[in-house]
Design a protein around this nucleic acid. Structure first.
Lengths: 354, 354
DNA sequence: CGACATTATGTTTACGTAACCATCACCGCA
DNA sequence: TGCGGTGATGGTTACGTAAACATAATGTCG
């Protein structure tokens, strides 16, 4: 038997494989063993009706004996469907992204889809551009984008036409299907909670300027204060990290009038707590702190953190539902789906002293 | 023009697409426009040599004009390679898994591979079995398994033969290629650090019994104490969550002889810190605490946590290198790659009082 | 100046699957 | 007894790509 070069190389490492089969077993092999046509094997493989029980059993036995696995590539080539959803995301260091991703993966799995991860190395235009231009080559039926939206705006790219897209936390609802948590309402709840406790005003440690979510939380913080006729203190800028929260906290600890702080995420709130502790400012005795996200650890901070709960699972579910609907209807559907947030009151907030 | 049913449906939603092309553009279309053979288009597409510059430019122009994207399925079917690595993982709620996954995705992207996420719904045998049996259908060239190993052991499954595998944090080094952090040495460093500070012994809050990593950390803790001739206190069992750490802490806070605790991860250490604070036990004044993982927030705990740093980036890199090597050589290579750990001393540990 | 490499390009084929149509056996019924 | 119908199965083809092979056009050197 004259093997081609490729095949002999392929065989080289197959210590466990039976010496007979050098190629992967295909429908034809199964068909030969079960003494039916390849077409019947296909029918059995896909659970189509119109196959006699006896024949089906014989085919299934042959499949098992040969260890047959359908070839995804061939199937995808024929059907034009990959049963795969691409997820473009910039970083996994923020809790939100990861939790959303996990929910997406779970929901997708339930629908028989798998997730292809498309990391964007740098949040630069080039990085995004690269991911998006290569996108057409990826074997995906749809795309979910988890990323700061301004990159989508400035990057002079468009997604390949005909590929369903859902974007998370973006204001591109006019062009794309968007799933968004109700950032504004969450921030409003946080600020109102503090005001209702009797604080005269609320300071804010915001996320990075480029972040759409950070912008929205900051805007709602400002608007809520203004609506209540309160003074709006200068905004402190963080970068989502606990460390940046710590730096902001060092400054706030020396601010005499400051009795309440709203941090744009829980990590920064954690840094705040440390800074307050280091400077002998009691939480919530001297200063109340509210976070955002409700990460699993938030209830175990010292003290347990009052924070705005985000339902990432719901976000992920909506994303998957969105792309699947688009896949099935073959229609783009711009618009925004809002997932509500709710305040979880723990022990980092209290009435101001005196 | 008589469209088949499928094609007309496909056209329905194409609001933006030009009315002409109903099918995706293929090499043939490009070839026709550029007035060359499909094969030449293939050569240009893959950057093969032996194409005249003038021709290449003409083909590239045609590609751009038609918006040509290579068809991944066809390419994979022909070449037998998907340029995709499957990652089987059970949960994204542990920092380690996520950080490892991120590193894997980044390393893989650098090598031109993408990641297919294969979540295992439940850590039951059925769940694993399902993921593994369906594995052969997934369009992956190799598999990286991030999961508690005992499931691999008990589940009566074997990975499809011929698919390269790398397992993270497992003791299956005799059968698979394994990348493992030096759990034992990390735990040893943690315990030694506390003993060197003058503590008579060290308590341990372990991870769940089924976890291989938890087992190894607990075993090393015990061994290190015994080697130093110290008494081994009863082991407390947690489940990785901050909450379980909190519960363990409530018990330890009432343990008079307890001056030093080694928690099997940082989340549980966080819960410990809260429990100590609630019970008026100063850290590190009354009790020293050491964690494991060195999550980004660990430096912002109250107080900043002394912990064992794991180099997840390195783990991810080794995983990708491992599977790529196996893909290229077509050889399974059982064995263990150890990634070192190192103790990061912060402010949660000190000499025992008195 | 003719045999011969070298380069550029085209033609054929196969990858594994599933849609479509063809065939065939068998059934009930007139 | 023969006819239409139904259910089970087989044959053919196409999906888009790239390897292998074939061919044509140039140049090169003895």
């Amino acid at each position: 038997m004259s093997n081609s070069g490729v095949e002999s190389v392929r065989d080289a490492g197959r210590t466990r494989a039976d010496r007979a089969a050098s190629r992967r077993v295909s429908m034809t092999d199964v068909a030969r063993l079960a003494d039916v046509s390849p077409q019947t094997v296909s029918r059995v493989s896909n659970g189509f009706p119109g196959v006699q029980e006896e024949t089906r059993i014989r085919v299934l036995a042959a499949m098992r004996e040969l260890g047959y696995r359908p070839n995804g590539a061939a199937r995808a080539l024929k059907s034009g469907q990959f049963r795969t959803i691409g997820v473009i995301l910039f970083t996994m260091s923020t809790t939100g992204n990861v939790r959303t991703l996990e929910a997406i993966a779970t929901s997708a799995a339930r629908e028989g889809y798998t997730i292809m991860l498309i990391p964007v190395a740098a949040p630069t235009q080039d990085g995004v551009y690269g991911a998006f231009t290569r996108l057409g080559e990826f074997a995906v039926d749809a795309v979910i984008v988890i990323m700061e939206v301004h990159l989508l705006d400035t990057a002079t790219v468009s997604l390949p036409p005909g590929v369903p897209v859902v974007v998370v936390d973006s204001d591109a609802g006019d062009r794309y299907s968007v799933v968004d948590t109700d950032q504004g309402d969450g921030a409003r709840q946080a600020v109102r909670h503090l005001l209702d406790l009797g604080h005269r005003t609320v300071w804010h440690v915001a996320g990075p300027e480029e972040s759409f979510a950070a912008q929205r939380r900051a805007a709602a913080w400002r608007a809520t204060l203004q609506a209540a006729g309160r003074q709006v203190p200068p905004l402190l800028r963080g970068d989502w990290s606990a460390d940046s929260g710590h730096r902001a906290g060092l400054r706030l600890a020396r601010e005499p009038g400051c009795t309440a702080v709203f941090a744009a995420n829980d990590q920064m709130a954690l840094g705040l707590l440390l800074a307050m502790h280091e400077n002998g400012r009691a939480v919530p005795g001297d200063i109340s702190v509210v976070g955002f996200d409700d990460i699993p650890e938030a209830g175990s901070f010292t003290p347990p953190l009052t924070t705005v709960h985000q339902d990432f699972a719901s976000v992920g579910r909506h994303c998957v539902e969105g792309v699947l609907r688009q896949i099935r209807t073959r229609t783009a559907e711009p618009g925004v789906t809002i997932v509500p947030t709710r305040l979880v009151v723990r022990r980092s907030t209290a009435e101001p002293r005196g």
